[in-house]
């Protein structure tokens, strides 16, 4: 069979594509689930935070604002000394500045920050992208369990 000219073969490609179903997902009506590792939004587990400021200092764009104060907490064991704990007054992440690098989540030594693949939090006003600690705390519900790893991987010891 003689080789078809490229022009004809090209027409064939477009025709075949037309007869196949389209790949479009009609977004607001149909939603695709992002992978569970997707860096969508940062969730804050407030009780784990010790106001150590590591995340705020390591952030390349300085979009985390933290304020806290020291307070006395009741001792762990009966008869112990009252502990000094840091209490979180303010923990804001400005998502209009955030570049979703994930350094804050990584450096957090007390597992207070988590990634959630949730992505639907766009706002008409840029100022509303500043999520305070209550809003960040609400994202905790959307944090998935860590996935199992591929064969051959060595699990992290923590």
């Amino acid at each position: 069979m003689p080789e078809l000219p490229g022009l004809m073969k090209g027409l064939n490609v477009t025709l075949r594509t037309m007869l196949r179903p389209a790949v479009t997902t009609q977004y607001p009506h149909v939603k695709e689930a992002p992978p569970s590792r997707a860096r969508g939004v940062i969730a804050l587990k407030e009780e784990n935070c010790t106001v150590c400021m590591l995340c705020a200092r390591q952030c390349p764009v300085w979009c985390i604002y933290i304020e806290g104060h020291k307070t006395k907490a009741p001792p762990r064991r009966a008869g112990g000394k009252p502990r000094t704990v840091q209490l979180l007054d303010r923990f804001d992440i400005d998502y209009s500045l955030c570049m979703y690098c994930g350094i804050c989540v990584e450096v957090c030594p007390f597992d207070a920050l988590f990634w959630s693949p949730e992505y639907e939090y766009s706002e008409p006003h840029i100022a509303d992208l500043l999520h305070d600690k209550d809003r960040l705390g609400q994202w905790m519900e959307a944090v998935p369990e860590p996935e199992p790893l591929e064969a051959g991987a060595v699990a992290k010891k923590k």
């Binding site: 477009t14 025709l15 594509t17 037309m18 196949r20 389209a22 790949v23 479009t24």
Partner: peptide, 13 residues
Amino acid sequence: KMMAHMQSRLGPM
């Protein structure tokens, strides 16, 4: 529509 489907899209919906 035809262009969209040839490009495996749906076009305006």
